[in-house]
Amino acid sequence: MRWLVNFILLALVVVAIGLWVTRPKTDDADLLAGLTADEAHGEEVFIASGCASCHMVEGATDEAKLVLAGGQSFPSQFGTFRAPNISTDAEAGIGDWEAIDLWNALHHGTSPDGSHYYPVLPYSAYIHLEPQDVVDLHAYMMTLPADATPSEPHDVPFPFSIRASLGGWKLLFLDDDWVMQGELSPELTRGRELVEAMGHCAECHTPRNLLGGHKTGAEWMSGAPNPAGRGTFPDLVTLDWSAGEIEEYLNSGFTPEFDSAGGHMALVVENFAQLTAEDRAAVAAYVKALPIQ
């Protein structure tokens, strides 16, 4: 009997250490102290980060895209996720959030009540945002309309329904190092910020391992199956478009054959079309600099 008691005690200690190591992390509000919010820059961050594309009501266009009531479904091999309400409604949305709450969500994947978010919120990309970006984004988002529609629960079966396990996922895959390393030109540095951080392009264009972590190195941005079950997300490494053709695609949605962007990519194009020509050129430069060595 004694060995069993010892074993159970040991197991409990191991679990406790594991939970402690993988606990949801947060930063104190001090981190953002002294930063002055710039709403106009916050709007740029909002557009480049594609917040509305997932958090708007399905099929919304123009002004209605700024009502972030949530509800769109995102099927995956782990279950179906539903975008929550992130409008300024204090009950249903995030109207009562301070900038630090947004920082902790985007940088650490941690909610204000201290639990792990699923990485369907692409914090493995947003972890690269600067504190100033998040302060500005928060100020801009607080100017958007409130909507009282309650968030719908995710439909994620056991064992993925245990959010504590996400601490392990973060330990394995959440990394604030950039994927593209080395001496980069100012244009490539901006391209990397738009692609790896705000645009979170890897979420669709990079294949994942069995645990849902992104593959890196030569496989970074090399295309992936669509978890919704229809077709694949294109391989950007072997894409034979010129930089000019990529820029045109991100502006008008026209491919070099003058077909136009469809599906979720059409929403991405709507966002990139609102950025500057220099920003679209920076994204094209990043794509042309692939593969990762």
Binding site: G59, S252, A261, G262, G263, A266
Partner: peptide
């Protein structure tokens, strides 16, 4: 850009990926 957006409006909503 506007012409592309007008083409895309239908392709986004009414064309199978």
């Amino acid at each position: 850009k506007d012409l592309g957006a007008a083409c895309g409006a239908c392709h986004k909503e009414y064309r199978e990926p």
